[in-house]
């Protein structure tokens, strides 16, 4: 954030995405990926880490998220302001296409970034919440494979929830 810190030597890591794009990240960002933090703490981290399950598009987003969180948390602002700032950022960050959300969720799980995983799960749940059954089917890209009798039986089991 401040220019003076650029003078001190910073440890950087190179993260390689599934499609071969290489991202350079500082340690403060890299450690937010729990999988990498474990490598660093175990002293097994090489400067070059391949992430086979994440595309460059999604990795760019993940890094953007981690960078913002790392900067806000070390920015020296008061906890409540930082909290507000992160909330605003998170809301804006989640304002993406549904498929990207799914990929982010899956990447956050793979890279073990708890806050991002929680955030994406919560956002995906809120998408489901606001939709009809037919819309949810579209969202999941599935067909209704119940017979009329079966569907009736499923609904009857928790009849109170449909009123």
């Amino acid at each position: 954030m401040s220019s003076s810190t650029e003078l001190t030597e910073k440890k950087v890591f190179l993260l390689k995405s599934l499609d071969g794009v290489i991202f350079e990240v500082e340690e403060s960002v890299a450690v937010q990926l729990e999988v990498i933090r474990e490598l660093i703490e175990g002293d097994c981290a090489r400067p070059f880490i391949s992430l086979y399950n994440v595309t460059s598009e999604i990795l760019a987003l993940v890094i953007e998220y981690c960078k913002h969180h790392a900067e806000t948390c070390s920015g020296g602002t008061s906890a409540t302001i930082a909290d507000e700032d992160l909330k605003t950022f998170d809301n804006e960050f989640m304002n993406v296409d549904e498929n990207i959300l799914l990929e982010l969720c899956s990447a956050a799980d793979y890279l073990d970034i708890k806050s991002l995983f929680e955030l994406t799960c919560r956002t995906l749940a809120s998408l489901i919440k606001d939709r009809t059954i037919i819309e949810v089917r579209k969202m999941f890209n599935v067909e209704n494979d119940f017979s009329v009798v079966e569907e009736k039986a499923v609904r009857k089991e928790f009849a109170w929830a449909f009123k």
Binding site: C105, C121, R122, L124, A125, S126, I128, K129, I133, V136, R137, F140, V142, E143, N144, D145, F146, E151, V154, R155, E157, F158, A161, F162
Partner: peptide, 17 residues
């Protein structure tokens, strides 16, 4: 993801497929 849904929502989407 489903753990973040309320009970009525969970019950509702049981009939998706």
């Amino acid at each position: 993801i489903f753990l973040h849904l309320t009970l009525p929502d969970i019950i509702r989407i049981r009939s998706v497929n």
